[in-house]
Every structure is written in C-alpha cells, then in structure tokens.
C-alpha cells in the first residue's frame, strides 16, 4: 500500500499552529485495566481536550518505563492483551466517534514478532498515524523507516539530552514530530527538570523540520504550560496512568454508574492537565 494524502498528525499540528495552541498528547497503556475500558478512556481523553493520543502496547520488559507504567503493563498482560488487541482498541474508539490521531507506543519486539511489514500495513489500516519505539535508535531503524514511509505512518523519533552530536541527524529525518525526552531517566513523575532543558528544546526546534514535543515526567498543568511556551506540545503519561490505577476499583466495577464515575475522574484529571497557554 502506498501512502496517499496527508497524515492526520501533520493536519493537527497545522491546525494548532493556526490557532496558536500547544499540542496536548495524553498517553494510556492499552488494556489497563482491560481493552473495553481503554476505549472509554480514549473517548474521555478527547472530551478532556486531547489533540492526539499515545496508546502504549503492554510489554513484559518495559526498560524505558518507570514503576507506574510497568504496573499498568503488568495489569494489561494479565488479560493477555496483544498488539492486535491494541489495534482493535483504536478501531473501536473510532467507532465511538473519536476523531484525534492515534500514535502507537511499543517496544520493538512485539512488532518484530508480528512481522514488521504486516505491522505497518495494519497500523495504517487500523487508523494509526504514528508509531514510537523507545528501544529502536536510528542505527537500527532502517527497515522500520522504509515501511513507515511506504504506509504513510509516521515513525516518531526520541531525542534525549544526551543525544549530543546525534540530534541533528535524528531530527532531519523525523516525521510527525520529534519526541524530546525531558531529562535523563525512565518515564515517571519528576520534581525537577534538568537546568539545560530550555536550551536543549531551543536547539531541537532550530534544527527540526517538524514540531518538537516534550515528554517524560510532566505531571501537572504548571509543568505543561511551562514547557508549551518553549516547544510545540507536551506528552503526559505516568501521571494519567497513575490516576487510572487509583480508579481501578471504579473502572473495573460491574456497576455502570460506578464505572462511569471512574471514567469521569480520569477525564477530569486529564482536562486539568491541559495547558491553557497560547503560543
């Protein structure tokens, strides 16, 4: 399949640029606590003002993730949630009327076992606009990049504060946006960010032909607003996944009213993170 037309991520950034808004990109671990609930939460995230969403594929060895997302992965894997299940969640969310672009976040081995070619084809067919693979550096991404180009799915690269001498090459071939890692370490809430983070973001934005969004450790509206003044968008993951964890009882309740309140608690938390800044 040859990619045709434009990518929904690019369209979204174009629209945000016109309105002067930073992109707000929540993350959810797919299948935490179960795939049905993830569909509800994706819908809730859009209602809370998300412009795009990252859907994480649960993995047995998430070495770029901190304890919150590790536990979410374990919960999802207890239901044997697979890569194929994650793709189905996207389709079902679309059926529920969700319009925003979907980005899959997955470690490299599940797609590798699925078959890379089939993976990219199915991503496109299931309505994904981008994919992030945290353990696939540019030295190893040749095959994935070729397939991404062919299917029109954006392969979104990560750049770290330690990427000195590499960042320019990484951003020059980026598609969709560049995912800037806020500071050293795994995903999860941080109290403080590296003093050099503003200079790091400024340099990336100068070099990058696509927007630059920041993630890893952003857990409050204050932080989201602070960063959306110096880059094009923010990704919030662990802070949201932690609320999902807090609401587990409600989210897994057979009582529809109780479950609705759980989803509402997550929605309201996500809405409270959205930066109000205009750029």
């Amino acid at each position: 399949m040859k990619a045709t037309g434009t990518n929904a991520i690019d369209e979204t950034f174009a629209r945000l640029r016109a309105s002067g808004e930073p992109a707000f990109i929540p993350y959810l671990t797919t299948g935490d606590p179960d795939p049905d609930t993830t569909v509800d939460l994706v819908k809730a995230a859009e209602e809370a003002g998300a412009h795009m969403i990252e859907l994480g594929v649960p993995y047995s060895d998430p070495l770029a993730d901190g304890p919150v997302i590790q536990r979410a992965s374990e919960r999802a894997l207890r239901h044997r949630v697979t890569l194929a299940d994650c793709m189905k969640v996207a389709v079902r969310a679309r059926e529920r009327g969700v319009k925003m672009p979907f980005i899959l976040f997955t470690y490299y081995n599940p797609p590798l076992q699925y078959g890379l070619e089939r993976f990219f084809t199915d991503l496109a067919e299931h309505g994904f606009s981008g994919v992030i693979m945290p353990d696939l550096p540019m030295e190893e991404d040749g095959e994935a990049r070729r397939l991404a180009e062919r299917t029109g799915v954006h392969l979104i690269p990560l750049v770290a504060p330690t990427s000195e001498g590499r960042a320019e090459r990484i951003v020059s071939r980026a598609r969709g946006f560049v995912y800037a890692v806020s500071s050293l370490g795994v995903t999860g809430v941080r109290d403080a960010f590296d003093a050099g983070v503003d200079a790091f973001l400024a340099a990336l934005r100068r070099a990058s032909p696509v927007p630059v969004c920041i993630g890893f450790g952003i857990s409050s509206r204050e932080q989201a607003e602070r960063f959306s003044r110096v880059c094009d968008g923010v990704v919030v993951g662990s802070a949201i996944v932690r609320i999902v964890e807090e609401q587990l009882d409600a989210l897994t309740s057979p009582d529809p009213e109780k479950k609705r309140r759980g989803v509402e608690a997550v929605r309201s938390f996500i809405a409270g993170l959205k930066p109000r800044t205009s750029r």
Partner: peptide, 20 residues
C-alpha cells in the same frame, strides 16, 4: 562495525544510552 554477529547483536536501547 554495527556490533553485529551475522543478523544478531546490535544496539536496541533507549536513545539516552546511545552516546554512552
């Protein structure tokens, strides 16, 4: 030079570690 033994090996780690 890429750390490969035939098809095996390589460096599949987060970007943060690559320069290290």
């Amino acid at each position: 030079a890429h750390g490969r033994f035939g098809p095996f090996g390589g460096r599949f780690v987060p970007e943060t570690l690559m320069n290290a």
